[in-house]
Design a protein around this nucleic acid. Structure first.
Lengths: 340, 340
DNA sequence: ATACTTTATTTAAACGTTTAAACAAAATTT
DNA sequence: AAATTTTGTTTAAACGTTTAAATAAAGTAT
């Protein structure tokens, strides 16, 4: 527990009867060969005794490092964001950095403001979930030489640092499993957006269907990002009305899955006997739904860890290689039994 | 978007052909009466043109303010934490502060480390969800004169700044509602801890039962904070075995509610006909459970807003009044229809 | 015309570090 | 013994601000 009056280098210097510079050298392990071992030991002991904590503002001002990293999320209140944030927190804290967090709510304006604030506060690096049409902004960050990694969202045609899920693989694997389960007419509920990760999910879905000789016409429903409550309902209505033979629905997001489940409960769909549901992303509540569900789990731990690892590397040694890691998740079963 | 070479006061001073000090005065609206209006206007224009952003490290070093506030949560991955974090974020960002976030995982050791890190980074204030037995640590913060507010958890016998839910009222209201609904034998699943907010929930439950002439003996199950999965199961098993007449269960947490719901699904409990469930805290998934549910909703928006408002006040004018706000939430209905 | 006020601006120190360069003393080489 | 190298430490400037105090110029009172 730190005492009232913050102790500084000069306090240590005074007590050890040496110069401030020497204290700084010792405490930072600078020129260790040039410094008398006894002096170094004495200084270190005094520093420990006084419970010295360097002032990060002074340090940062001088070294142009803040020991802070900024994390830009879509929306902290969204469990997906919160989970990834927590994983990143754990990976960051160990390295003596602090974590600034902000939500951009899929708005490019908020995004710009956040980035500006973070850079203004001299973060040493950025981990970014980027909104639609933010290519220019990322380029600017890159140009300024600020270490960064994109996660979750990416831009296929840009050499941006990135770690994220293999979305093509994901939905492709989902469809394969559904077919294995005997399903023949599969609907897909996804978002109406230009995000590349969503287009990949759609591509994965469609190409897997094609391979399996399954029709996709009229079975892909793309709902707007906002107004989910009513829009998902509408999409489900249409999907079911136009495809009386439908025997499975794949969702492209955990939130979409949630709304799908709500719809199923409210409309008494016969799940999974008549229609099997398949979700995206893990969610604790999958198994309170009345039937077991299979879902695709993104490798969040891996994404978070790799993003931080790379960022740290880049901070210590800027302008290194570009990283582009596409990692694969796996299918999981929620464990609820069928209630009948 | 900020340009490559950060512009600083001296750049503005040079272009305006004035001293750095004057620029600083103008940009901070210091001594406005003493400064020639034209000069001030000129300086402001140049600052805007160059897109000047003050360096918070230099500023903070000089003024001992960092424009950062630290938020200590239980666990960012927990939806309750994430929600409150998001609300606080929104209230903080507007005031040009940045938000440092950390999870203490109910560990006093992690808690100490986080507080230390935040204070080390010279946060201007702290919003704290405090772990068990952290009275001493809060006292130390108070003594150091660092503006802070506790939220959610509090210490009844200490004059600490606090904003939080009225937990006695909460469970009391829940029981009243259950009785109104015709329930006569009510179980309570809560945690086995010394946290005051949990003891309040228990007190509210017990006193409401007493008022209604309802027995509580053997119906209050206190499960450990860890190992929820198996412990909730065990608690439910015991509760049901020992109370064959049980017709309602009140949960003391959204996570406990979740595990309760899982248990109900897995064990095919007849909810709500035979046993009514009542939850604590809002959760999106309440209405995918096969029956509608009533739950107590904490006034999170109000708590977050009041906490930030007070903190800002305290930062601007330290050593003001102590605040102790206990706010009330309300009962809500999850909207799922009964499926049968 | 001199003294005092007011107005507008500058000087310089300070915040707590880091770090290149200078320095002094001791050890080694010539 | 003088010159050189090595060892251990200090000096002082710098990072980008803020702010008390100083200063200069202009205006007003005597």
């Amino acid at each position: 527990m730190s005492k009232k009056g913050k102790v500084k280098l000069s306090d240590i210097a005074k007590e050890a009867e040496v110069s401030i510079a020497l204290v700084s050298y010792v405490l930072n392990n600078q020129h260790p060969d040039r410094i008398k071992k006894e002096t170094a030991a004495r200084i270190k002991k005094i520093a420990a005794k006084l419970n010295y904590r360097p002032n990060p503002l002074a340090k940062g001002l001088r070294t142009r490092k803040s020991n802070a990293i900024g994390l830009v999320l879509a929306d902290l209140a969204n469990p997906f964001s919160a989970q990834i944030a927590r994983i990143i927190e754990d990976n960051v804290i160990g390295s003596d950095y602090i974590l600034l967090i902000g939500s951009m709510d899929e708005s490019i304006v908020k995004f710009r403001k956040l980035i500006d604030t973070f850079i203004g506060h001299h973060v040493d690096g950025l981990i970014i979930v980027s909104p639609e049409y933010s290519k220019k902004e990322i380029k600017a960050i890159q140009k300024q030489g600020i270490p960064y990694v994109l996660i979750d969202r990416y831009f296929p045609d840009q050499p941006f640092n990135f770690v994220g899920n293999d979305n093509y693989f994901a939905t492709h694997a989902c469809v394969q499993r559904l077919v294995t389960n005997g399903r023949k007419s599969i609907g897909f509920i996804t978002h109406d957006t230009d995000y590349f990760h969503f287009s990949e999910r759609k591509r994965g879905f469609e190409s897997a269907c094609r391979e399996q000789g399954i029709q996709t016409e009229g079975r892909v429903m793309e709902v707007a990002l906002s107004g989910l409550k009513t829009n998902v309902k509408k999409a489900m209505d249409t999907l079911l009305a136009n495809n009386p033979d439908l025997d499975a629905i794949l969702f492209s997001t955990s939130v979409l899955t949630l709304y799908g489940l709500k719809y199923a409960v409210r409309n008494q769909l016969n799940v999974p006997e008549q229609i099997e549901f398949m979700g995206f992303d893990q969610a604790e509540y999958y198994d309170i739904f009345s039937s077991p569900m299979t879902y695709y789990e993104q490798p969040l731990e891996e994404i978070g860890k790799k993003a931080v690892d790379f960022l740290m590397l880049e901070i210590d040694n800027p302008g290194g290689q570009t990283i582009q890691e596409i990692v694969k998740g796996s299918l999981k079963e929620a464990v609820a039994p069928i209630v009948r």
